[in-house]
Amino acid sequence: MNKPKVVLVACGTAIATSTVVAKGIEEAMRERGLSVTTRQCKATEIRSRLSGVDLVVSTTPVPHDLGVPVIQTLAFLTGIGKEDVLNQIEQLLKES
């Protein structure tokens, strides 16, 4: 039950924007008492990195037929609507 949920965070480089998102998710979910680990990858490698992943969060277009929930969002970068997205992530992780 206490196994941490795995969030795969994708962007164009796996360096820049995905780091912002990954740290944002880790911090916010810790505050909400959810144990989460994040992995980062490029949008191009997403299919080969899916095993064990509960949720995909991306800042760039990715396919939606991955078999796990996908959230595409810029909220972590712009700050606009970040709470809503965090709520949505929390919801999805609790259900998964």
Binding site: C11, T17, T60, P61, V62, L74
Partner: peptide
């Protein structure tokens, strides 16, 4: 809001 072009690369 000006952002990194990394957000375009998945296209």
């Amino acid at each position: 809001i000006g952002l990194d072009s990394a957000i375009l690369i998945g296209h």
